[in-house]
Computed example of a mutant assay.
Amino acid sequence: MSDETGNRDELLAEAVGLRTRGEHERARRELVALAAAYPDDVEIAYQTAWVHDLLGLEAEAVPYYERGLGGPGLSDEDRRGALLGLGSTFRVLGRYAEAVDTLRRGAEEYPDDGAFRTFLAMALYNTGDHHDAMRLLLTLLAETSDDPSVRRYRRAIAHYAQDLDETV
């Protein structure tokens, strides 16, 4: 490993440690400097986006999320986090169509991750697509709930998730 890569790794670990310990503003300053020094580094971009989100700086987070997702190299876990973070951030910013597109892509890539379907349902609600939002949430509820009363009616909930307007 070259000294430059070693230094990068140490500086990134230090900044992530600051974020983990709740020193978000200090972590943000260090990550912004790292992102400027390593503009093509997708991991640094993702970590920089994450800390901006933690600080409520959603608009500033977007370009870092996009940079992080724009090239290869993110671990599967970080890619999942970046897609969810970007989709959620778009929704918070009122960029609902972009939120739906991003969260739908995440739900397709990670079909077992209920968080994508949950946030996608919220974004669909924001676009006025209440039917699909309810369908997603009811399906997720039927599939994942451990509540005994929900489990008892799982088949009915799953059935009506497909068409809430159905009557006898």
Rank of each mutant, 00 (worst) to 15 (best):
F90G: 00
L120T: 07
Y125T: 10
D9P: 00
T20P: 01
L54N: 10
R154Y: 07
L18F: 08
A36K: 14
G71Q: 11
T118Y: 15
R151C: 05
A123Q: 04
A59W: 07
H159D: 09
A27Y: 03
E14P: 00
R95Q: 15
G56I: 06
Q162S: 12
L124F: 15
Y65F: 12
A82C: 08
L140R: 11
R28Y: 02
A156C: 01
V16H: 04
G6H: 06
P39F: 05
A161H: 13
L55K: 01
R21G: 14
L84Q: 11
R154I: 06
Q162E: 15
S2D: 06
Y65R: 02
P63S: 05
R104A: 13
G22V: 10
M134I: 05
E30D: 13
L69M: 11
E23R: 09
L120W: 13
G71F: 03
G114W: 04
A27I: 08
S2P: 08
D3H: 08
G128R: 07
R152A: 14
I157W: 12
G128Q: 06
A36N: 12
E98F: 03
A59R: 13
F119K: 12
A45E: 08
P72L: 07
R95A: 13
M1G: 08
L138I: 03
T48M: 05
A133P: 02
R8M: 08
F116G: 01
H52T: 03
A37N: 06
L54G: 08
D163N: 15
L74W: 04
L120A: 00
R29L: 08
E166V: 10
D101C: 00
G70A: 08
A33R: 13
G81L: 01
